[in-house]
Nucleic acid binder design. Structure first.
Lengths: 113, 113
DNA sequence: CGACTCGTACGATAGCTTTCGTAGTACGAG
DNA sequence: CTCGTACTACGAAAGCTATCGTACGAGTCG
């Protein structure tokens, strides 16, 4: 079994506040096949996923990079849980900032919304 | 006065067909402040605009580049009219390919949709 | 034709992106 | 404490992007 259920504090991860999320950065973050796939996977049921559970066609360090881009753009929120880093979409906040945007992108990707 | 009203054939400009428009390219095209502004301006009433009438904070050659990116991504359609190159949004086709996407982006930019 | 306007093509450059490997840190299990 | 797992940080390389200036082509007006 992975962990005991406790949420470890871990190191702090920088996230932009909802009001600081810029459209340009979000679009830029979504304009990459790997990241688009991460977002689709997150939207596809699994609310919280560790980086490892995405089977991405890139190396670990490259994954780290893509997750960081998504996080810094404000698309996902990440937190540590043991040695794993969990990710979840910031759907609600994005909906407030840019209504309909995430939904349109997901729909275009063939994800049930 | 600009021209006599005749539509000159000019040189052919390559456009992707609606079915060939890729989400990734569209997002990538929109992920730039200059291009986002072009798109907003086009949506803002002026259906057909010559490149020159956008007062962009970049040089002529850079403009050409940005218009090309938008055209090749399938976001705008361009045609020659005299010495001018007119541009218009491919709103309807985009709506068919990616419902709600353009609208969400424009709304996020503060454009009345 | 000649001059002027609008836009393109080309070449160059600086900076960013994507990618990786390697080395290291943080956590949990034993 | 030691080991394995999960992930990061750093450095490096290759490629793309945004930007420009200059030189040129296509069309219009006199």
């Amino acid at each position: 079994m992975p962990h005991t259920g406790r949420t470890s504090p871990g190191r702090q991860l920088e996230h932009p506040q909802a009001a600081q999320i810029r459209l340009e950065s979000v679009l830029s973050a979504l304009a990459d096949p790997v990241r688009l796939r991460i977002v689709s996977d997150l939207a596809q049921g699994h609310e919280d996923m560790a980086c490892i559970s995405f089977e991405l066609p890139v190396s670990k360090s490259t994954s780290t990079h893509h997750f960081r881009v998504l996080r810094e753009a404000g698309v996902i929120r990440q937190y540590y849980e043991g040695t794993s880093r969990m990710s979840r979409l910031r759907s609600q906040e994005l909906e407030e900032c840019f209504p309909g945007l995430l939904e349109a992108v997901l729909r275009a990707q063939g994800v049930q919304v």
